[in-house]
Amino acid sequence: MAIDWNDFFAPVWLSLKVSLIGSILVFVLAAATARWMAKRRFMGKSLLETVLLLPLVLPPTVIGFLLLMLLGRRSWIGEAYEWFVDSPIVFSWIAAVIAAVVIAFPLAYRTMKAGFEDVDPELEKAARVLGANEWQVFRYVTAPLASRSLVAGFILGFARALGEFGATLMIAGNIPHRTQTIPTAIYVAIDGGKQDLAWAWCIAMVLLSFVMLLLANGYSKR
Results as ranks from 00 to 15, higher is better:
residue 54 L to F: 10
residue 206 V to A: 12
residue 38 A to P: 07
residue 101 V to I: 15
residue 221 K to E: 09
residue 203 I to S: 04
residue 117 E to C: 11
residue 166 G to V: 01
residue 209 S to N: 12
residue 47 L to T: 07
residue 75 S to H: 05
residue 117 E to R: 09
residue 164 E to R: 00
residue 139 R to K: 15
residue 146 A to C: 10
residue 108 A to P: 10
residue 112 M to G: 03
residue 31 A to E: 08
residue 127 A to E: 06
residue 2 A to C: 00
residue 198 A to M: 13
residue 71 L to I: 10
residue 82 E to K: 07
residue 24 I to V: 15
residue 191 D to V: 03
residue 214 L to F: 11
residue 78 G to L: 05
residue 191 D to G: 15
residue 151 V to H: 05
residue 35 R to A: 04
residue 109 Y to M: 12
residue 62 V to Q: 04
residue 121 P to E: 12
residue 71 L to P: 05
residue 29 L to N: 04
residue 56 L to I: 03
residue 89 I to F: 10
residue 36 W to D: 00
residue 191 D to Y: 08
residue 185 A to R: 13
residue 194 K to W: 03
residue 222 R to M: 10
residue 151 V to S: 03
residue 18 V to D: 12
residue 168 T to L: 06
residue 205 M to I: 14
residue 181 T to M: 12
residue 201 W to S: 00
residue 78 G to C: 12
residue 80 A to K: 14
residue 90 V to N: 04
residue 8 F to L: 15
residue 4 D to I: 02
residue 91 F to K: 02
residue 216 A to V: 09
residue 104 A to F: 09
residue 157 G to H: 08
residue 218 G to D: 04
residue 157 G to D: 04
residue 71 L to V: 14
residue 202 C to K: 05
residue 186 I to N: 05
residue 32 A to Q: 06
residue 169 L to T: 06
residue 186 I to E: 06
residue 58 L to S: 03
residue 169 L to N: 04
residue 82 E to H: 07
residue 79 E to W: 09
residue 120 D to P: 13
residue 152 A to F: 03
residue 76 W to C: 07
residue 164 E to L: 00
residue 164 E to T: 01
residue 168 T to P: 01
residue 43 M to R: 13
residue 189 A to G: 08
residue 86 D to W: 11
residue 133 N to K: 15
residue 54 L to I: 04
residue 132 A to T: 00
residue 115 G to S: 14
residue 157 G to Y: 01
residue 135 W to C: 13
residue 1 M to I: 10
residue 107 L to M: 15
residue 159 A to N: 04
residue 196 D to C: 07
residue 83 W to D: 05
residue 104 A to D: 11
residue 176 P to N: 08
residue 189 A to P: 06
residue 84 F to Y: 14
residue 114 A to S: 14
residue 103 I to E: 00
